[in-house]
Computed example of a mutant assay.
Amino acid sequence: MDTELAKTFLVVAETGSFVKAADRLNISQTTVTARIRSLETQLGQALFERGRHGATLTPQGDRFMPSAMSILQVWERARHDVNVSTEHQHVLSVGGELSLWNPLLLNWLVWMRQHCPEIALRTEVGEANTLIGKVERGVLDIAVVYSPMYHPGLAVEMLEEERLVMVTTDPSGATAENEHYVYVDWGPEFSAQHDKTFPSLKRSGIFVGMGPLGLSYILSAGGAGYFRERAIRGLLEDERLYRVPNAPAFPYPSYMVTTQNDETGAIGRGMEGLRTVVRDGMSPWVMPV
């Protein structure tokens, strides 16, 4: 199917209007209408309800949405794969949650370049559910996440049992008050344990959804919060951060997810690299602040 049809469908669905979609795509409204009509003819179903207030998805259109997104994602991967230089024998596509790029996946990229120069690497950042969905659809070869979904056909392997520890910028190591505490969203399991242990801190004035953002904030403005032990090790050694005495550490394991267990191909080499950088230890790396 023409990828332009899928792209046009997604833009109409997002904007809720054939006119706005035409403006976004820099084409005429007539072309948008023709593309959607062609797509509906090929699928044998109406995808939009047209009305005075715009276009809304039909139940069939709503069910087609994931397929349309997958079509464009697979096409983008195909474009990347065929344009890789002849020096590379394989292309490996890997995605990870933002916090895992610091330092796990950064160290993995270095390892791959040193030990597998024949493999071209394609990487991206995303949320766990999105990344795992891309593995299922063949857009990604490996996803590295904190909360895997155990779907049929997926191979899930724990990489490391990392810990979340409470640190502060206060040299005394005192627990921060609510207004100085940064509540980082490390997922529902962490929240349940954290809120039971620190019921007053769950009402913190600052709540962030990304560990690196919270870490950068307290290094700039002062405060405390829970962060990945490996990511802040260098900051503890440099005395830019201090452990809060008697604050419990919470487990935070990471996993790699794939659809294949072939240890001999490019995916197997990528998995080997992930295991190796975890086993041998990783160079600390922190986002600049």
Score class of each variant (00 low, 15 high):
Thr3Cys: 06
Lys7Arg: 15
Ala13Cys: 07
Ala13Phe: 02
Ala13Gln: 14
Gly16Asn: 12
Ser17Leu: 01
Val19Asp: 07
Ala22Met: 10
Leu25Ala: 03
Leu25Gln: 04
Thr33Asn: 07
Ala34Lys: 12
Ile36His: 05
Ser38Gly: 08
Gln42Ile: 01
Gln42Cys: 03
Gly44Asn: 04
Ala46Gln: 11
Arg50Ser: 11
Gly51Arg: 13
Arg52Lys: 12
His53Cys: 03
Gly54Arg: 04
Gly54Ala: 05
Ala55Glu: 02
Ala55Met: 01
Thr56His: 02
Thr58Asp: 08
Arg63Gln: 12
Arg63Leu: 06
Met65Arg: 15
Ala68Glu: 04
Ala68Arg: 05
Met69Val: 07
Met69Trp: 07
Met69Ala: 08
Ser70Cys: 07
Ser70Ile: 06
Leu72Ser: 09
Glu76Met: 06
Ala78Arg: 15
Ala78Pro: 02
Arg79Asp: 09
Asp81Asn: 09
Asn83Pro: 00
Val84Tyr: 01
Ser85Thr: 10
Thr86Ala: 12
Glu87Ser: 10
Val91Asn: 15
Leu98Val: 05
Trp101Tyr: 15
Pro103Asp: 13
Leu106Lys: 09
Trp108Gly: 02
Leu109Gln: 12
Leu109Asn: 05
Val110Trp: 03
Trp111Tyr: 15
Met112His: 08
Cys116Leu: 03
Ile119Ala: 11
Ile119Arg: 11
Ala120Lys: 11
Leu121Gly: 09
Val125Ile: 14
Glu127Gly: 13
Ala128Val: 07
Asn129Ala: 15
Thr130Tyr: 03
Thr130Cys: 06
Gly133Gln: 14
Gly133Leu: 06
Glu136Pro: 01
Val139Arg: 08
Ile142Lys: 00
Val145Tyr: 00
Val145Met: 04
Ser147Ala: 11
Pro148Ser: 14
His151Glu: 15
Leu154Trp: 02
Leu154Pro: 05
Ala155Arg: 13
Val156Asn: 12
Met158Leu: 11
Glu160Phe: 01
Glu162Pro: 00
Val167Gly: 08
Thr169Leu: 05
Pro171Thr: 13
Ser172Leu: 10
Ser172Gln: 14
Ala174Tyr: 00
Ala176Glu: 11
Asn178Val: 09
Glu179Gln: 12
His180Cys: 05
Tyr181Lys: 09
Val182Gly: 02
Asp185Leu: 07
Trp186Gln: 12
Thr197Val: 03
Phe198Asn: 09
Ser200Thr: 04
Leu213Pro: 00
Gly214Glu: 02
Leu215Met: 08
Ser216Cys: 08
Tyr217Val: 02
Gly223Leu: 08
Arg228Pro: 00
Arg228His: 02
Glu229Pro: 02
Glu229Val: 01
Glu229Tyr: 03
Arg230Pro: 00
Arg230Gly: 04
Arg233Asn: 06
Arg233Met: 07
Leu235Thr: 05
Glu237Ser: 10
Pro245Leu: 03
Ala247Met: 06
Ala247Val: 06
Pro248Ala: 10
Ala249Glu: 13
Ala249Thr: 10
Tyr252Asn: 14
Val257Trp: 01
Gly265Ile: 04
Ala266Leu: 02
Ile267Gly: 00
Gly268Thr: 03
Gly268Asn: 10
Met271His: 06
Glu272Lys: 14
Leu274Arg: 08
Leu274Asp: 04
Arg275Pro: 00
Arg275Lys: 09
Thr276Cys: 03
Val278Met: 09
Arg279Gln: 14
Asp280Asn: 14
Gly281Arg: 11
Met282Phe: 03
Pro284Ile: 00
Trp285Asp: 11
Val286Ala: 09
Met287Ile: 04
Pro288Leu: 09
